[in-house]
Design a protein around this nucleic acid. Structure first.
Lengths: 223, 223
DNA sequence: ACCCTGATATCCGGCGTCAAGTAACCGCCT
DNA sequence: AGGCGGTTACTTGACGCCGGATATCAGGGT
């Protein structure tokens, strides 16, 4: 639908009416860091860790180096320098290209603006919760609520600490978000646990599904 | 840490103090369906679609067949029958083994009880939001809130409809959950958008980060 | 002299995604 | 009745990404 041109390995987005982003968070982070200053991959990883970014972005060396490659192939970044220190492996320092910078901003906007379909494990778990008996289910939910609570507490502590260190709210917004979402889930879980315990949520192990009145595919891909 | 035994390709969990689940939602769903009755892979897929499970579980044929293979290798399921109809490809009907059933229940419990680390794209987006200017950011957030609202509306309609069809709450709990989470995010996004618009969330494009007072690795893997 | 940790990169196997490929079936048109 | 276009049944294969493990060297500590 969106017209785009392929020039060799380059894949230029042209007239991006639909940004059609398919840039992984990791890639985004790389772009972002290289926008600050040129670095070599290992340094990227180290920096991400220092800034706690790996709390929100899946990071490991395998995919890091791979992603860097891909970004280079796309022309978003280019090797600026290769240096060798002692007998260590030679390292390549990359820097952002102008195109890369555009992509960065575009992608950020897009990710923020449009929700994408995610598939959290918990949803799947819920879907099959009726395989447990009511008591167990309630207990498990309470366990979860506890874990959630612990994480919330911990992240809140970190948040305060960082604020005390002078970090601006804008720099910590993703932490705020995570805390809020975790807390929301916790509330919900707790509510359901209660409803199970006091019998308000009617339980029936086994086949609860199948009333064949569910037509399929009303067209649009939800969210 | 958890002692477990490997017998050939089998990997038995032994004294599962730490269930250490690594069963994908898709696998779970397969187990679940085969617990109802034996089926062949394509039928599994069809059933999942009929029940709207693919709204919560990533489903495509490639991984379906692969996952079935793996489950068979693990001994959770076994081929019960192979049949050929006309000139169609021969199909293999699988059924659940007793071990498989145990795994199913165990895994469900585990998934429900312990939160796992997820990496939603949006968090990453937020982390780099300062690359946008304030007005754009606010606008994008409002767009997102709109989309979220639409999805919530749509899912709510579906929920009511299914309830009207006589489905029990327990059978629809994952829908309830999704709606609640979406709504929570929507609220949060809206709040932040407002705070940006009225200047309450102080904006400063570019380097907001780096106060080198963030120590690394306090040990435990958060959530 | 030894060991542990950090720096730096690569490799390999598994899992997921996409899309192709073949057959049967259904309906309609003529 | 014949034929042909579309949808459904059913599986396989190629390929790319991801994550974990591993190799190598440097340097500091005991």
């Amino acid at each position: 639908m969106t017209p785009d041109i392929r020039v060799g390995i380059f894949h230029l987005e042209y007239m991006q009416a639909e940004p059609s982003v398919d840039v992984s968070p990791l890639a985004l982070s790389i772009l972002q860091l290289l926008d600050e200053r040129p670095m070599h991959p290992y340094e990227l990883a180290a920096t991400m860790r220092d800034r706690h970014q790996d709390e929100f972005i899946r990071l490991n060396f395998g995919s890091l180096y791979h992603t860097v490659d891909v970004l280079e192939r796309n022309g978003w970044i280019i090797p600026a320098e290769r240096e060798k220190e002692g007998n260590r492996p030679e390292r390549t320092i990359y820097r952002l290209t102008p195109t890369g910078r555009e992509v960065l901003v575009g992608v950020v906007g897009d990710i923020v603006a449009r929700p994408r379909r995610e598939f959290p494990h918990f949803a799947a778990g819920l879907m099959f919760m009726h395989h447990l008996d009511a008591a167990k289910a309630a207990a498990h939910l309470e366990t979860r609520a506890g874990a959630l609570g612990a994480t919330v507490a911990k992240l809140s502590r970190i948040l305060e600490e960082l604020q005390a260190h002078g970090l601006k709210r804008l720099a910590l917004i993703e932490l705020e978000h995570k805390i809020a979402m975790l807390e929301a889930e916790r509330q919900w879980v707790l509510k359901i646990a209660r409803e199970i315990s006091d019998g308000q949520l009617e339980w029936s192990t086994g086949m609860v599904r199948d009333i064949e009145g569910l037509r399929r595919r009303h067209g649009s891909s939800t969210h």
